[in-house]
Design a protein around this nucleic acid. Sequence first.
DNA 1: GAGTGGTCTAGACCACCCC
DNA 2: GGGTGGTCTAGACCACTCT
Lengths: 265, 265
Amino acid sequence: MSVLTSMQNQSVAAGNDALMPITVSGPSFRPLYDQIKILLTQSLIAGEWKPGEAIPSEMELAARYQVSQGTVRKAIDALASENILIRRQGKGTFVATHTEPTHQYRFLRIIPDKGNKDKVHPTTNFIDVKRGKASTEVASALDLKPGAPVTAIRRVLVFADTPTILEEIVLSSALFPNLTIERIRESRGSIYSFLETGYGLRMIRAEERLYAVAADVTAAVHLMVAEGTPLLCVDRIAFTYGDKPVEWRRGRCLTDGYSYYNELA
Amino acid sequence: MSVLTSMQNQSVAAGNDALMPITVSGPSFRPLYDQIKILLTQSLIAGEWKPGEAIPSEMELAARYQVSQGTVRKAIDALASENILIRRQGKGTFVATHTEPTHQYRFLRIIPDKGNKDKVHPTTNFIDVKRGKASTEVASALDLKPGAPVTAIRRVLVFADTPTILEEIVLSSALFPNLTIERIRESRGSIYSFLETGYGLRMIRAEERLYAVAADVTAAVHLMVAEGTPLLCVDRIAFTYGDKPVEWRRGRCLTDGYSYYNELA
DNA sequence: GAGTGGTCTAGACCACCCC
DNA sequence: GGGTGGTCTAGACCACTCT
């Protein structure tokens, strides 16, 4: 017995007068594939399928939700286009992960000015990891109370031997306990891949705001430029399932030979 | 007689031994809906349907290309997701246009820091429109010979009485003859809407590169700030149908109360 | 060969818009 | 009421992957 309400009654085989026409459709109408998309998302939140794992086949899901394969397909298509699931023909559909090399630096948009939009993978120098209280800015971004305990990571990304980005990353200490510089370092990967394996929280989406600032003393020192040098500042809020904000980040970037690349459609 | 090659033979009605199995499928396989997408794009390039107009209904197109409605649907879905076509339930499918108020500033990503991501529509002050020769940078961006004749437009976008963006827009004079400040001014709309109505060329996509610079004298004067003020520099190349680059643009933006907003997925 | 995702079809019906 | 896009189904077949 399905809990879902469909646009159509399943009166395809005519003469089925016994069935209640459930086409309430009511004030707010939700397509079936949308409801299934929500159910799938809930299973992802609940951890029924973990990052990297395969979800059940389309046929199995169709049977589970009592809908046709095509409807399941449409739900999966939507999640795949949001980079939450990954389809692989002949193999199955998988929960996306930041651990794969391909998705390692998925959110990094800084690329060299020359050289055909190829990303250059940076190396990372950690500065420190400190515990502190959330500023009002961070608190409102992460839906925390001002002053809530947070952990701040500072690091420098080095592109081809040039220190290029000074980053400050802030996470709720409640959500991510026991964050230490050693644990992050030994994970050897992106921060997101570390948070995924270490805390089971996957980032699926982010919002960024870009603006220009002059380098202060700290930035000047770490990026080895003169104080006052114009820097590209990138503020980011990253979200997990259910649009829950879990990371705040500010990167200050030396755009000398590098730039932030974006496509508009 | 269809020119298209399908994945399946239309041997649905069995016992059709006379038909040649066209399933060459060969080395490079192209889904039917992809081929139809290309045909639709060609019709758009040819100007068979102009911006703002409706294209034929899905049923008509299915009949024209000798495929099912579902296949046409998938082709249109792809074009709609690229903002090339716009679907309107109950009315039809339309060729997207920059003339509509909704799409007026589709490529503008600068929004106020406060106020929930609402775009503020700027007013425009034109500085000058000059003819000149393409620099090597512009020439390579627009696929022109270095030194080819171009027209450069300079203007300032004003947000809430604050001059915020100084823009330089470069277009091939061959493609866009007789560009004058008067014609642009009297068109009263975005540049892209003007180019669309005046020259029939529609921008469908753009690439941007962002970086930080210090304000030079010109920028300082027009944006009314001190020389050396950090500015967000946005270089853009805009493309028409067939990925043909037709506009080069550099905007220098005072990010004081405003920032460049971007979503990552 | 069995299983998975991917394509294509034909047909029924719903929601929306306009006459 | 008739047209358009939107949803949903059932079924056939293709392409890919692994065993």
